[in-house]
Structures are given as structure tokens and as C-alpha cells.
């Protein structure tokens, strides 16, 4: 037992260094990546065979092969690629615009205690308000085009970034700021050389949260109105009792969110290279 748990804890420990009495096959099982993949295979197998075994109809839970067949059909006849790219594009666009606005406003408010106090109750109110509920309003205002879904995404991405940046600006080490002042740095110099870099870890955390929300914003925008995107395919497929289409759209949305999240994790590792790595 101890051998196995040690192997789990020490991911980088090569299998050869393990005690000889634990077989190599068991060692491979203890590797989290392998275990994770095995879990995936089990879930996929259950998905494929359980619904048929339990007599669940296809329009309630389509099997894996049903979904793959539907995916090929969507690719050929529903213009899946176009829908996918449109959703991906607006997810990324909404994420960039929303987080830029959130970061800029966060830094501006972080530099002015006065305006932060003036605006914070309203920011809190807007943060609490369910952003997705704005979607129908945006459609009334801007019509059935890409604008509403972009706006919902921007709105939903905006707050976690804003709040994280603001929080970080409040907790910048006063002694560091004093040091910079003693070295004759201007207000702007203090911002660029001390405050902004100090807040980077929080900014990156905010961006990571925002990246998972961006997909939600776009999906809701597409569900409520419009005729493009994976969100549209969900409501379209739902209307036709085509559960496989809905399944596929959800999976592809997850893929987009996953890709965005991991891109950010990579960027974060780059940007925050100077932080000591936590020992896992």
C-alpha cells in the first residue's frame, strides 16, 4: 500500500526506482495520467453499452456511436465547422474585450480610492445580477446578430477580472511603493514598475476564471437568439428531439473552453516564471 501511495505522490519518479516486489503493470496503474485515461475509457464504454442495455431510447440518451454518426452528419449537412468556428471566435473575442475592459477599469479604480468607494456598490450589484439574463434585452436592442452574444460574453468575463485586479491593487505592498517613491519614480512609474507586476498573479487567476465563463456567455447568447454557433445547434437539436446533436454541441463547447483555459495556463506559466513552483 505504501509503495503505491508513494508512487502516486511522486509523479516524476521513474517506475524503475520502485521496490522490486511491486509489478511494473501495477506501477503504471498508479500513474495518474494512465489512471485518468483508464477512467475515460470506462466512461466511454458505459456510455456506449449502458443505454442499450437499460433500454433507454436514443432521443433520451444517444450512445457514443450514435453521437459520432450524428457528428459526421452535422459536419456534412449542418455546416458544423462554420458553427464551431463562429462560437470559438466569439468566445475568444468576448474574452479578450471583456478582460481588457475589466483589467483597465480595475487598474483605474485601484489607483483612485475615491472612485473605488463611489462605484463599488454598483459594481457589486452588477456582479450579483445574473448576466445571462441580459441576453433577451440585448437582442431587443441590437437584433438577431452577433452583437448580443458578444455583449453577454463581455459582461460575464468582465467582473472576475475586474474584481481580482482591484483586490490585488488594494494589497500591493506599501513598503514596495514607498521604496519606488524614495527612488523618485513618478506615479505612472510606480504603477508600471511595482503595482502592475505585483498584481499579475491575481490578474492571471482572474483571466483563468473568466476563460471558463466566456463559453457560458457565448452559449447563452446563441441559445436565446441567432442562427449560428453551437448554442444555436443546441436549441435547434432540442427542438427536433435530436439529443445526439445537443450532446455533440455541448462536447464541442467544452473543447473550446478547455482550449482557452489551457492556453491561459501556458501563458501564466510563462509570465509568472519567477514564482517558486509549488511542490506537488
Amino acid at each position: 500500500m505504501t509503495e503505491v501511495s508513494q508512487a502516486v505522490a511522486g509523479r516524476s519518479v521513474p517506475a524503475t526506482s520502485a521496490p522490486a516486489r511491486v509489478g511494473p503493470r501495477l506501477m503504471r496503474l498508479a500513474n495518474p495520467t494512465v489512471a485518468s485515461l483508464i477512467l475515460l475509457v470506462i466512461v466511454l464504454l458505459a456510455w456506449e453499452f449502458l443505454p442499450t442495455a437499460l433500454d433507454v431510447p436514443k432521443f433520451i440518451i444517444p450512445t457514443l456511436s450514435d453521437c459520432l454518426a450524428e457528428l459526421a452528419r452535422m459536419w456534412a449537412y449542418e455546416g458544423l465547422l462554420g458553427h464551431f468556428l463562429s462560437t470559438a471566435l466569439y468566445t475568444v473575442l468576448g474574452f479578450i474585450v471583456g478582460s481588457l475592459l475589466g483589467a483597465v477599469l480595475g487598474y483605474l479604480l485601484g489607483m483612485s480610492a475615491f472612485w473605488e468607494k463611489v462605484l463599488s456598490p454598483y459594481i457589486l450589484a452588477l456582479q450579483i445580477a445574473p448576466k445571462v439574463a441580459f441576453a433577451p434585452l440585448f437582442i431587443m436592442w441590437f437584433g438577431y446578430n452577433a452583437m448580443p452574444k458578444l455583449l453577454v460574453t463581455v459582461l460575464i468575463v468582465f467582473f472576475p477580472v475586474l474584481v481580482n485586479v482591484l483586490q490585488a491593487m488594494r494589497t500591493v505592498d506599501r513598503d514596495l511603493v514607498n521604496l519606488a517613491r524614495a527612488y523618485n519614480l513618478s506615479r505612472l512609474g510606480v504603477f508600471w514598475k511595482v503595482e502592475m507586476p505585483s498584481t499579475l498573479p491575481n490578474l492571471m487567476a482572474g483571466l483563468r476564471i473568466a476563460s471558463t465563463l466566456a463559453v457560458i456567455g457565448v452559449t447563452v447568447g446563441e441559445l436565446v437568439g441567432g442562427n449560428t454557433g453551437l448554442g444555436f445547434l443546441i436549441s435547434y437539436g432540442g427542438g427536433q428531439a435530436n439529443a445526439a446533436m445537443v450532446f455533440n454541441a455541448i462536447l464541442l463547447l467544452t473543447v473550446i473552453g478547455y482550449a482557452l483555459y489551457f492556453a491561459l495556463v501556458k501563458i501564466e506559466a510563462r509570465v509568472l516564471h519567477y514564482l517558486p513552483r509549488a511542490e506537488h
Binding site: D173, A180, Y183, N184, L185, G189, K193, P197
Partner: peptide, 24 residues
């Protein structure tokens, strides 16, 4: 001045930390 805390900027290398005071 120097405090109990070293106040080095963690995102800068040592040499660029030493240069910090000269930049302004």
C-alpha cells in the same frame, strides 16, 4: 534606505533589481 524586508521585486532578476533605483 533598507528595511527588514528585502523589498526585492520578485519578477526581476537580481541585477535588474539592483538597477531599479537608477531607472528613474
Amino acid at each position: 534606505f533598507m528595511l527588514q524586508k528585502d523589498l526585492l521585486l520578485p519578477w526581476r532578476s537580481i541585477i535588474s533589481n539592483i538597477e531599479f533605483g537608477l531607472e528613474a
